[in-house]
């Protein structure tokens, strides 16, 4: 997992200090627990009106 995380960041051109690797893995585990609280089914097609403003700001 640590290698995957480091690889994802390196592919973006981000240099990860060695001592961050374990910290990132641990925080990712916390994040995955939080992600498990998401009610995926109720969100699936829930429309949040994500849009772009035609004509730009102030239109």
């Amino acid at each position: 997992m640590a290698q995957n995380i480091v690889q994802i960041l390196q592919d973006k051109g981000i240099d990860v200090p060695e001592h961050h690797e374990e910290m990132l893995v641990n925080q990712w585990a916390v994040f995955e627990k939080m992600r498990a609280t998401v009610d995926q089914e109720s969100l699936a097609d829930y429309d949040i009106g994500l849009t772009h403003v035609p004509g730009g700001d102030g239109k």
């Binding site: 990860v16 990132l24 994040f31 992600r35 969100l43 829930y46 949040i48 009106g49 994500l50």
Partner: peptide, 19 residues
């Protein structure tokens, strides 16, 4: 660094939750 790992689907689901 951590924020670079979160996916677009995570972000949009977060916005659904906000609504």
């Amino acid at each position: 660094e951590f924020g670079e790992l979160v996916t677009a689907v995570d972000y949009l689901q977060a916005q659904q939750i906000r609504r």
